[in-house]
Design a protein around this nucleic acid. Sequence first.
RNA 1: GGACGUGUAGCUCAGCGGGAGAGCACCUCGUUGACAUCGAGGGGGUCACAGGUUCAAUCCCUGUCACGUCCA
Length: 888
Amino acid sequence: MLEKTFDPKTAEPRLYEAWENSGAFAPTDDPKAEPFSIVIPPPNVTGSLHIGHALNNTLQDVLIRFERMRGKAALWLPGTDHAGIATQMVVERQLAAEGNVGRRDMGRDAFVAKVWEWKAKSGGTIVNQLRRLGASCDWSRERFTLDEGLSAAVRKVFVGLYKENLIYRDKRLVNWDPHFQTAISDLEVEQREVDGHFWHFAYPLEDGSGEIVVATTRPETMLGDTGVAVHPSDERYKALVGKKVRLPIVDRLVPIVADEYADPEKGSGAVKVTPAHDFNDFQVGKRHGLEQINILDDFGRINTSAPADYAGLDRFVARKKVVEAFEAADLLRGIEKTRHVVPHGDRSGVVIEPYLTDQWYVNAEVLAQPAIKAVEQGDTVFVPKNWEKTYFEWMRNIQPWCISRQLWWGHRIPAWFGPDGAIFVAETEQEAEAAARAHYGKDEPLSQDEDVLDTWFSSALWPFSTLGWPEKTSDVARFYPTHTLITGFDIIFFWVARMMMQGIHFMGDVPFKRIFINALVRDAEGKKMSKSKGNVLDPLELVDEYGADALRFTMTAMSGQARDIKLSRQRIEGYRNFGTKLWNATRFAQMNGCARAAGFDPAQVKVPLNRWIVGETARTAKAVTDALADCGFDETANGLYRFIWNQFCDWYVEFAKPLLTGDDEAARDETRATTAWVLDVILKLLHPVMPFVTEELWGQTADLGAPREHQGFLMTARWPDLPQSLIDPAVDADIGLMIEAIVEGRSVRQGLNVPPAARPPLLVVDATPAHRKVLEEGAALVERLLRVSEVRFVDAAPAGSIPYVVGGATLALPVAEFIDIAAERARLTKETANLATDIERTAKKLDNADFIARAPEEVVEENRERLAEAQAALAKLQSALARLGVAA
RNA sequence: GGACGUGUAGCUCAGCGGGAGAGCACCUCGUUGACAUCGAGGGGGUCACAGGUUCAAUCCCUGUCACGUCCA
């Protein structure tokens, strides 16, 4: 006998271990099985499971379990990302906390060794947390972006792109993060709106004939100014173009140039130009041949290009000092408060500086073209489709991708410099040396580039590097391209777009055929969850409290497309209860001898109730299968919920009770067998979403009755494929009538406060022969569920009985003694009024010649029926109302 | 400023040309064995607003307002 409730705490770890040990997570070797692969969006190795991971990985697991049960060679390939900055940050922080020497004092090799040490000890956290969620990843294929194999892929790709001139080295402005002292890509910059000031500075003209006023939000950059720009058509300044101003503080003469970048409408119409520290000014400077003076160091301090009393100052200290100097010199012409957008590092949170350095770039524009085309022609589709617009928008305006980072943790760039600065790019040092020898005609000492690659450079290769590329492995042949990528929209640019580019370029085929973009999880108030706001729901805590199945079901049910998910505990609790409901239904079945019958054929059942549930099961199986095949996760969950709770438990089990305990042996046996069969189908259909409770029930009912076709785990059982011919519309209608007779009858009873203990008869006043037959045969059920003494067929309803109309039948409850006549008159009056309105509207519609002429035949017919039914019901209620008058 | 999206019951959301649904919350009632992690019933919505298309609009089109996200 089953326990009273399912205990996830003990069952989940036990079941997961059993699955994993059985090898069920690996794809089948069957060569006939169609491959179906998913690569996990690799979480940062520093990460721990947050609610977004829970959603994303639940959906992947639902899909992979479904396809596995459908007989595919299903591979869900897991792994983690080395996460350059994030990991380096964690380890540095740890070193500091432990009172160790810092990274720089320690030296590169020692530090990297420390990081590996950290990874070995703490890097597996998230992977184990995925297990708690029930993720059926093939752990035997687990990868890490810094693995030897993946590193080989990175080197090969780098060298390949370099040889095609798609990777190049360039000196230009980058987004410089003074906190980490590294360049970062455009995508890693967050534009934040902050309060600031516009300082208006007067620059005296060289000839002493006056001044020109410029405004800036970053006064310290004036130390690097090399020009002033005015608009060419700006009459105010026409005469000044070509003259020079004398920069205060630095005492440098800089030219006034005419450039369309200057906006005559803004401020004074003149702008200062700092080519080395502003992206726009960089362009202006290039156009006019202005000098580029770098005034910062790697830490964001003023360097020695500035006057001595500024050198070494932090940029924000220098800002103040510059303003003070202008004020002291009586050259400060105004201060204006403003809100403006300032770039911040997404990891460090500090203000980013445009900074002139040598970096490596990928010519993304070239790689983007085939990636755009692939989505245009549908080789890869986005689900929901709208996201392709976001993808196109970015891809069509793509900028060069800065891929070098001044970090130590990551893939070292495979480039070596000769003594004269010549560059040798090669997959190995030996090859680089050989190339250098050929170049110089002799051995020369080489030094490898100190920088590492952007983490996303290696994740861009994930769909093929993890399968073993550049080796020609059977996995590459079998599982590339992968089928579906499930990920969040926040990394469409960072990751998805770049996988598309690299996959197509190196594999000649898209990395995945379908991209499902899942929603973003927020708290119940719709706020993005973050530790600082303290509104984080920890998925592991939720798993502890409600079980993994409940969390998974919640995630699945709420995964409606392209929306935010606002998560609340109540919701999870409700779905935990759903699991309990199924558990108890199974327990009920077990208690009533429901067991699989050998050779049971659902198409052969005779009892109408059984025919009905078999049909409903087939209907649900098809709906769930179709939904899952289309990534309709929420539909899947909601459909199963309704079927299991509102149809199977609420009606089938209730209706089956008399049959299970009755004397009709044939009906009893058939009902037992049917129940067992339906439950087995339910377990299969629900398994992808709630793997634990279903697997447990599957195991616990393994010995009930005839052995199953599939003896092993539910997770490896075959997905149900039921013909729709199992649906019998006539039986549907009959059971529907029964349900309606009971539901409406209950409504009448409770609406009139008839005591629950009262057992009046149910009178059937008039009914078609078919309806009469159904109610006759179902009498016992109606008696039990409507709490009536009997179902009696009469010619007319006695005075004071309360009628209600169901389908074509008029039913009545003689409960006059219990009820408030006035209340009942009010009820009937309200109902007749509703019917009258409905009749009026429908009649009006049917009177409309345009409607008759233009509306589809079935709609017209439907309205005719509606009218007829409403009129009949109205007549019945009116006569009841009349009788009520008599009774009163 | 541009792009995308969203405004439906108190809350979270489905629906999307032919008289609006679910879960939770709320109110009332109910323990003789599947389940109180339950059962039964009920209240509650000019489907943001204004125009238009249509025999018919919550659904399609246009505009307005509000909110959100991303990109400048």
